Simulated assay, not measured.
Amino acid sequence: MIASLSPKASLIVGILIPLVITVFTGYNAKAVGYSFFVGLAFWVISGLIQGAMGSSGDKIRAHYYSTPENDRTERSRWASTFFYIGLPGMIMGLVYLYNGWF
Results as ranks from 00 to 15, higher is better:
residue 28 N to T: 00
residue 45 I to S: 04
residue 54 G to L: 06
residue 79 A to G: 10
residue 37 F to C: 08
residue 74 E to K: 15
residue 38 V to Y: 04
residue 69 E to I: 13
residue 75 R to Q: 09
residue 48 L to D: 08
residue 26 G to K: 03
residue 63 H to T: 05
residue 43 W to G: 11
residue 17 I to E: 06
residue 59 K to R: 07
residue 49 I to E: 01
residue 47 G to A: 11
residue 82 F to N: 04
residue 61 R to C: 08
residue 72 R to D: 09
residue 35 S to M: 06
residue 74 E to H: 14
residue 48 L to S: 06
residue 66 S to I: 04
residue 47 G to H: 02
residue 51 G to F: 01
residue 24 F to N: 11
residue 77 R to G: 11
residue 27 Y to V: 12
residue 55 S to W: 14
residue 31 A to R: 00
residue 60 I to D: 00
residue 75 R to A: 12
residue 23 V to T: 10
residue 80 S to P: 10
residue 80 S to K: 14
residue 36 F to N: 07
residue 77 R to H: 09
residue 70 N to I: 08
residue 42 F to C: 13
residue 59 K to A: 07
residue 58 D to A: 02
residue 69 E to N: 14
residue 33 G to I: 02
residue 64 Y to I: 09
residue 70 N to T: 12
residue 48 L to T: 09
residue 17 I to F: 10
residue 71 D to S: 14
residue 53 M to I: 14
residue 18 P to I: 03
residue 72 R to F: 11
residue 34 Y to E: 07
residue 34 Y to R: 02
residue 45 I to T: 05
residue 49 I to D: 01
residue 32 V to M: 05
residue 82 F to H: 05
residue 83 F to W: 13
residue 82 F to G: 05
residue 71 D to P: 01
residue 60 I to T: 06
residue 54 G to C: 07
residue 28 N to K: 05
residue 78 W to H: 06
residue 34 Y to S: 05
residue 55 S to Y: 12
residue 71 D to A: 14
residue 46 S to C: 07
residue 20 V to S: 09
residue 63 H to D: 08
residue 57 G to E: 09
residue 31 A to W: 05
residue 78 W to T: 01
residue 57 G to S: 13
residue 68 P to C: 13
residue 40 L to W: 03
residue 66 S to M: 10
residue 70 N to P: 06
residue 40 L to S: 10
residue 62 A to D: 09
residue 74 E to S: 13
residue 50 Q to E: 12
residue 29 A to L: 11
residue 62 A to P: 03
residue 83 F to V: 05
residue 24 F to C: 12
residue 19 L to Q: 15
residue 78 W to I: 08
residue 36 F to K: 03
residue 39 G to L: 07
residue 56 S to Q: 06
residue 51 G to H: 03
residue 23 V to Y: 11
residue 65 Y to F: 15
residue 67 T to M: 15
residue 79 A to M: 02
residue 81 T to Y: 03
residue 20 V to L: 15
residue 36 F to T: 05
residue 44 V to W: 04
residue 58 D to K: 04
residue 64 Y to T: 12
residue 71 D to F: 13
residue 51 G to K: 01
residue 19 L to S: 15
residue 76 S to A: 13
residue 76 S to V: 08
residue 22 T to N: 03
residue 41 A to D: 09
residue 66 S to T: 09
residue 49 I to M: 04
residue 28 N to S: 09
residue 78 W to S: 04
residue 45 I to W: 00
residue 54 G to T: 11
residue 41 A to H: 00
residue 29 A to H: 08
residue 33 G to Q: 04
residue 67 T to F: 15
residue 57 G to C: 06
residue 30 K to M: 10
residue 82 F to V: 08
residue 28 N to E: 00
residue 82 F to E: 02
residue 19 L to T: 13
residue 80 S to Y: 14
residue 21 I to S: 06
residue 41 A to R: 02
residue 81 T to D: 03
residue 78 W to M: 08
residue 69 E to R: 12
residue 32 V to H: 00
residue 25 T to L: 07
residue 72 R to I: 08
residue 49 I to L: 11
residue 78 W to N: 03
residue 83 F to D: 06
residue 75 R to I: 04
residue 64 Y to D: 10
residue 65 Y to I: 15
residue 48 L to Y: 09
residue 58 D to C: 00
residue 83 F to K: 08
residue 55 S to I: 12
residue 24 F to W: 12
